[in-house]
Amino acid sequence: MNFPDDLKYTKEHEWCRIKGNRVVVGITDHAQNQLGDIVYVELPEVGDPVKKGESFGVVESTKAVSEIFSPVSGKVVEVNDPLSDAPETINEDPYEEGWMIQVEFSSGKELEELLDVDAYKKFVEEEAE
């Protein structure tokens, strides 16, 4: 399982790449592997508000629906639209081509609550037990 060490993580298995006043958000390699083949995504629109810990979209495998939770509060400033036609990209490349949204965050404080790579790895291991 691949967990890049330059990213931050959540206990809901999202990853965040911090870029200035924005974060790029996607789901982790572990999450895509657990979900299985992803066949549908539902993402917000540019301009939509998001709130930390609240659902901003869903990913669906052939069998199940899973919500995706925003790691920070703020406003959606970019959406990875090509995912609608190629949701399998999330399985194939969860950290690069499979990114979902970019959020302009309203408070830098929320970033401090995110997990670093070691904390996330530990969390995944504990969850598996």
């Binding site: 299985g36 083949d37 066949v39 495998s61 052939t62 069998k63």
Partner: peptide, 11 residues
């Protein structure tokens, strides 16, 4: 078993 490699490949 719900899947081995993946539902789509098995289908």
């Amino acid at each position: 078993p719900v899947q081995y490699q993946g539902v789509l490949a098995e289908h």
